[in-house]
Design a protein around this nucleic acid. Structure first.
Length: 262
DNA sequence: ATGGTGGCTTTGCCA
């Protein structure tokens, strides 16, 4: 089984890119973030024609939004609201084999890394705390689960182009890395990508649009993640970031993260 | 220290 996580930055503008991804990489499930469309504007028919007959959308107009696109039947479609907001940042489904899949779009957090001065940063930290508590409640112990998406945090020094220059930049601050670690501990999540790509190796999944040449400067960050519970960790057979997709026509600023399971 | 681009609820706001 091949599962991909991809922040598409508008699903309506990325249908061709999703078709290319499906054709060239044959994923079974693609979890997208920043859909930026509500149901009435979502390209269900075009995506079904690509081969994703089963779609679970949690969308809203203009902002955020997550969806699970699948060749396989999806059970128990749902998703939580977090921090008292209905802002479409979480979709959950059950995959064949009883695997519980959680697709997240964690708040980016604004520019100033201070929760007192910046409500968006406070929201990001609060979201991480709530998700940590939710998974830690224990009712999900031992389950085969996948948590993936745009988590908007690059935790390792090798997950950013310059650890030193990004220490005070939202996405790589100590408080965010600590909160992400707490979320990771909440269900003993294993970073499936770093299980395959050694932590010493640099790896990014996002490159800003605001670069004259994103590839030449290569100032990336690994904001997109795929985690699995211990019951699934042994089934992970491969993982990579499809960097080339950042260079496709009409690209998202994020690249797809691909994980294979036996 | 600054500003750069892209997408949308578009001429401001979010990333």
């Amino acid at each position: 089984m091949r599962i991909i996580s991809w922040n598409v930055n508008s699903v309506r503008l990325r249908v061709d890119n999703l078709a290319r991804l499906a054709s060239e990489w044959q994923p079974d499930v693609v979890c997208i973030q920043e859909v930026k469309a509500e149901a009435k504007d979502f390209p269900f028919e075009a995506l079904k024609a690509i081969g994703f007959e089963h779609i679970h959308l949690r969308g809203m107009k203009g902002y955020n939004g997550v969806a699970v696109l699948s060749r396989l039947p999806l059970q128990k479609p749902g998703g939580e609201n977090w921090c008292g907001k209905e802002d479409s940042r979480h979709a959950m489904v059950r995959l064949p084999g009883g695997i519980e899949l959680h697709n997240f779009y964690i708040p980016a957090g604004g520019d100033i890394p201070d929760p007192d001065a910046n409500d968006k940063f406070a929201h990001k930290l609060g979201f991480l705390d709530e998700a940590t508590t939710w998974f830690a409640e224990g009712r999900r112990n031992g389950r085969k689960m996948i948590l993936l998406g745009d988590l908007n945090i690059a935790p390792l020094e090798t997950d950013v182009w310059s650890h030193k220059e990004l220490l005070n930049v939202v996405s790589h601050t100590a408080i965010e890395v600590e909160k992400l670690k707490q979320l990771q501990a909440s269900a003993k999540w294993v970073d499936a990508v770093r299980k395959i790509v050694p932590p010493a190796e640099r790896l990014y999944s996002w490159w800003s649009y605001r670069a004259a040449d994103w590839s030449a400067s290569d100032r990336g960050r690994r904001l997109d993640h795929v985690w699995v519970t211990p019951a699934l960790a042994g089934a992970v057979t491969g993982a990579r970031v499809l960097k080339e997709a950042r260079g496709w026509k009409m690209p998202s600023d994020h690249a797809p993260v691909i994980v294979d399971f036996s």
